[in-house]
């Protein structure tokens, strides 16, 4: 049976992360996980039991988490610093900037329950700023995997990277988007489907709704491209430009503020390359965020099959 993207439901990226990390750590005792009372939310309880000597717990202290991770890495450890994305990138932002990026310590910063994964817990727990904040910091790769395959590959790639990397993902079960034979490479977007009318350039957990929107637009006779832009920095510039030249409109989608994230990164590429195209950034506006579950918040801001289909049609109507 051939693979159809978006058909089969997989698991949460979080589970794939913890499983992949455990297998890496079993093979290499230099692999160390550092947690800030986050082994439960990071699904690392099994890791902690299986490899207690490879887990460092620092308590609820994200600044220390990141500083300690830098020190461990300097002494040759392959360090995964695991904490909710919001706390990791906000509370410890200066440690990330100085101790990791500026000092070039190859720590793997793992932002769990990213974006609005915590849903109704509210804005303290959301990370809708992290991509913007870290895009402006020199020397960090930013990866937002969209499905289980991308997550496993991204974790394995991160383990091999000799420079800092930030990976963020959520905890909801996601559909499989890629044939297991696909080739994952940081900095190279993964196509989910091809098309010539509208291109959806999406990242992380918004790729699936973008794919569903593309399916819906099929029924209107529109051919839509869907790209998983798993690496937000460095951006796959070629994929962005060819999407804008091959298609009549481009819609970017992200679980993040519309300020400073994937959308603005793509806009900057197209503007500077002189590629004019009807273009829309879908994400969270600059406002007190709607409350509810992750999917309710997605729906509220049009990160859904009907919402994205409507946005695409509007762009085309405007003269795509």
């Amino acid at each position: 049976m051939s693979f159809v993207a978006g058909e089969a439901l997989g698991r949460a990226n979080l589970e794939v992360f913890s499983e992949t990390l455990l297998s890496l750590a079993r093979e290499d005792r230099n692999v160390v996980a550092v947690t800030s009372d986050s082994r439960g939310s990071g699904k690392l309880a099994t890791f902690a039991k299986a490899l207690p000597d490879q887990l460092v717990e620092v308590g609820i202290a994200e600044q220390n988490l990141v500083g300690v991770a830098a020190g461990l890495a300097s002494a040759g450890k392959c360090v995964f610093a695991v904490s909710p994305a919001s706390f990791l990138t906000t509370r410890a932002f200066e440690q990330i900037k100085n101790d990791i990026c500026y000092s070039d310590r190859p720590v793997k910063l793992i932002g769990i329950s990213a974006g609005v994964s915590y849903g109704a817990l509210g804005s303290t727990h959301h990370s809708t700023h992290d991509l913007a904040a870290l895009r402006a910091v020199d020397n960090v790769t930013i990866v937002v995997p969209a499905d289980n395959f991308e997550t496993a590959q991204a974790i394995k790639s991160a383990a091999r990277m000799s420079h800092p990397v930030y990976l963020r993902f959520g905890k909801r079960a996601l559909a499989h988007l890629h044939d297991p034979g696909a080739r994952f490479e940081p900095g190279r977007a993964l196509p989910v489907r091809d098309g010539t009318d509208v291109a959806f350039i999406a990242t992380g957990e918004t790729v699936w709704p973008a794919l569903m929107a593309a399916r819906e637009l099929d029924t209107h006779g529109l051919s839509c491209r869907v790209i998983s832009m798993h690496t937000v920095k460095p951006l796959d510039v070629d994929a962005v430009i060819s999407a804008a030249t091959d298609c009549r409109a481009v819609v970017t989608v992200e679980e993040h503020s519309v300020f400073g994230g994937l959308g603005e990164a793509c806009a900057a590429v197209l503007m500077q390359a002189g590629v004019p195209v009807p273009f829309k950034i879908v994400g969270f506006p600059d406002e007190y965020l709607a409350t509810g579950s992750q999917l309710e918040i997605f729906d509220h801001y049009g990160i859904s099959a009907p919402g994205l289909a409507q946005t695409a049609q509007m762009l085309l109507a405007r003269g795509g």
Binding site: V56, Q63, N64, V66, G67, V68, A69, A70, G71, L72, A73, S74, A75, G76, K77, Q95, D99
Partner: peptide, 11 residues
């Protein structure tokens, strides 16, 4: 200090 703790811990 946090960095130093990490180095000492690795030791």
């Amino acid at each position: 200090l946090a960095f130093s703790v990490g180095v000492a811990l690795a030791g």
